[in-house]
């Protein structure tokens, strides 16, 4: 498979009143043509910051992308692009769907025009044609009565319809990469499944690669080809879907899997939850970031950061438990069942 996006040593800091927050700490990963890559982690782990940085949408006043960071798309470093070149990529080659469809649409512009806008920018067509195509696009994403609805304003739409419109906007120019940042978090559970199914179908039709950012492992189980787990601004484990669900290696991944409710679970048993809170990224710990909350923490974990250990061609993990001197453990029970429990 062909690599279409290559991220190397991405480091992003935020300058705030309190000081410098290290939101993303030296991460590297690649995206392949037509695949769905999931980035999973709890809020504040840097997953949204990472996805926004690919589109260069971080606030320039406070966010600082380190100089040695590289985001290579189509042979060029996105981080170094200026003006027209950047405009060409945004919306045409890489598109994005945001978390909250309520606030992500312009309230004073008809939805049809909002979809048509990216067509007008990136293709040479007339306004009329663009609007027609926008209506087609709205039909494609399953908006009922698309012809009429295209003339309406976002406030006349329900949450699910707005997210469909967002998807239509994002996919209007048939981008090579779609970044979906928590696309269903703000929606009702029943709508969530519909939207995810829609994204998956369109992805197969258009052969778009997707970066799916989410905290919901249930969604990931049904969709992702590969999964990356992020914690405190770092990627701590990565692998294909089956590896991550059937043979996870990092205690944090274990904890995440155990905290997903399962159909098979006995009604009286308590749902597992991870104790504590993620570290303050104003002062990142010098050892493993998860050490504070890890049930298997060892003295070494607090002293030095773990290095990446290759498990298979596709899986690797950053954990001291992989060290030859570390004790061999039995994984906790309750890891399995997710992949069947909520697959779409």
């Amino acid at each position: 498979m062909k690599k279409i996006l290559d991220i190397k040593n991405l480091t992003i800091d935020f300058n705030t009143y309190a000081g410098r927050i290290q939101a993303v700490r030296n991460i590297s990963f690649s995206l392949y043509e037509g695949e769905i890559l999931a980035i999973v982690g709890e809020s504040g782990c840097g997953k949204t910051v990472t996805s926004k940085s690919i589109m260069r949408l971080l606030p320039e006043a406070t966010a600082q992308v380190n100089n040695h960071s590289e985001i290579i798309f189509d042979g060029q470093n996105v981080l170094k692009l200026k003006g027209k070149e950047l405009k060409k990529i945004r919306g045409d080659e890489i598109a994005m769907i945001f978390q909250d469809p309520m606030s992500a649409l312009n309230p004073t512009m008809k939805v049809g025009h909002q979809v048509a806008e990216s067509l007008l920018i990136h293709t040479k067509i007339t306004k009329k044609q663009a609007f027609k195509e926008a209506v087609q696009m709205l039909k494609l994403v399953g908006l009922p009565m698309a012809e009429k609805r295209a003339h309406e304003y976002p406030n006349q739409y329900s949450g699910g319809m707005r997210q469909r419109a967002m998807i239509a906007i994002a996919l209007a120019c048939k981008p090579k990469i779609l970044i979906a940042d928590e696309p269903t978090t703000a929606l009702d559970v029943t709508i969530q499944a519909q939207i995810m199914k829609l994204i998956k179908t369109l992805q197969a039709d258009l052969n778009t690669a997707i970066i799916l950012v989410t905290h919901d492992l249930g969604i990931v189980a049904g969709m992702a080809d590969r999964i990356q787990v992020m914690y405190a601004g770092q990627i701590i484990e990565r692998g294909v879907r089956e590896e991550l669900f059937y043979d996870p290696q990092h205690p944090y991944t274990w904890a995440l899997l155990r905290s997903v409710p399962k159909v098979s679970q006995k009604s009286k048993s308590q749902l597992y939850s991870i104790t504590g809170t993620p570290p303050d990224l104003l002062y990142p710990p010098k050892g493993c970031a998860f050490a504070e909350r890890c049930e298997y923490c060892m003295p070494i974990c607090r002293k030095d950061p773990p290095v990446e250990t290759i498990i298979s061609k596709t899986q690797s993990v950053n954990c001291w438990l992989q060290h030859k001197d570390a004790p061999k453990l039995n994984k906790p029970s309750g890891l399995k069942g997710v992949i069947h429990g909520q697959s779409l």
Partner: peptide, 14 residues
């Protein structure tokens, strides 16, 4: 600071 400005930027509007 609104999200829809990010949406517009993500479309390539500038």
């Amino acid at each position: 600071n609104q999200d829809y400005i990010l949406t517009a930027k993500a479309k390539g509007v500038s």
